[in-house]
Write a protein that binds this DNA or RNA. Structure first.
Length: 226
DNA sequence: CGATTTTGACCTGCGC
DNA sequence: GCGCAGGTCAAAATCG
């Protein structure tokens, strides 16, 4: 699967990107899910993906994104329409090459900075911090009463923090499995407390724990994610 | 009593 | 260099 192969690249300094991820299983559980459509690197949100390249509402995933309060109001506006951007990588010629899912076929396209909406100033920012290796991350938001959704893995809370300009604290969780360094953080959207933003960081080195008989939706989700 | 959560202190990165 | 904000640690409290 396309998303799986992209996750193989642990060197996050070499790419920014989106890839496919259908969280329809959450919908099966009665939870609506939306992927946050913006490029981010090293905790710096660079620019929204322009609407023409925005992923569809249920088929994309940001590898390395950080919910940025300054851009939250934009997040839901560019979710629909346009080709489905699967991946985005910087080429040796200082241009960006993306893979776009157009009518089933996957095509390669070159984008310049303007098309990507990434300014040259911000590009310098990327270069200066490129050497820092970061675990793969992605985030998505769900409409849910419960903060921590059952994703099949066992998590232990290790911190909670009140984030500036938000009334809801952000919670930090680590996978309880030995040698597994996967983390996730959970927070509620300030503008709409019904929405939960979940950010995963890292890859599990094990399969999900099925203490009790997990729902089929949960196990399907895990297959897709990891 | 072990596992988990809570929470204040501490650490670190970043912007100015 | 300093201050701020986010992320992590770890001791104490709580839970099952």
């Amino acid at each position: 699967m396309f998303s799986q192969s992209l996750f193989e690249d642990q060197d996050m300094s070499s790419q920014l990107g989106f890839f496919s991820f259908p969280p329809n299983n959450y919908n099966n559980m009665g939870i609506s899910t939306t992927i946050l459509p913006f490029i981010g690197y090293n905790q710096t949100t660079l620019k929204m993906i322009p609407p023409s390249f925005a992923p569809s509402s249920h088929h994309s995933l940001n590898i390395d994104s950080t919910p940025d309060p300054r851009h939250k109001e934009d997040l839901t506006t560019s979710l629909f329409g346009g080709p489905h951007l699967l991946s985005l990588q910087k080429s040796t010629t200082n241009t960006w090459v993306g893979e776009v899912n157009e009518s089933i076929n996957i095509k390669r396209r070159e984008f310049d900075h303007d098309h990507l909406g990434v300014s040259s100033i911000k590009m310098k920012k990327i270069k200066s911090s490129r050497r820092k290796v970061r675990e793969p991350r992605f985030c998505f938001k769900t409409m849910s009463d419960v903060d921590v959704l059952d994703d099949g893995y066992k998590w232990r809370k290790y911190g909670q923090k009140v984030v500036k300009n938000t009334q809801h604290p952000r919670s930090y969780y680590r996978c309880t499995q030995d040698n597994c360094r996967v983390k996730k953080r959970v927070e509620r959207l300030a503008e709409d407390p019904r929405m939960v933003i979940t950010t995963y960081e890292g890859r599990h080195v094990h399969s999900p724990s099925h203490d009790e008989e997990d729902s089929q939706a949960s196990s399907q989700l895990n297959n897709i994610l990891w």
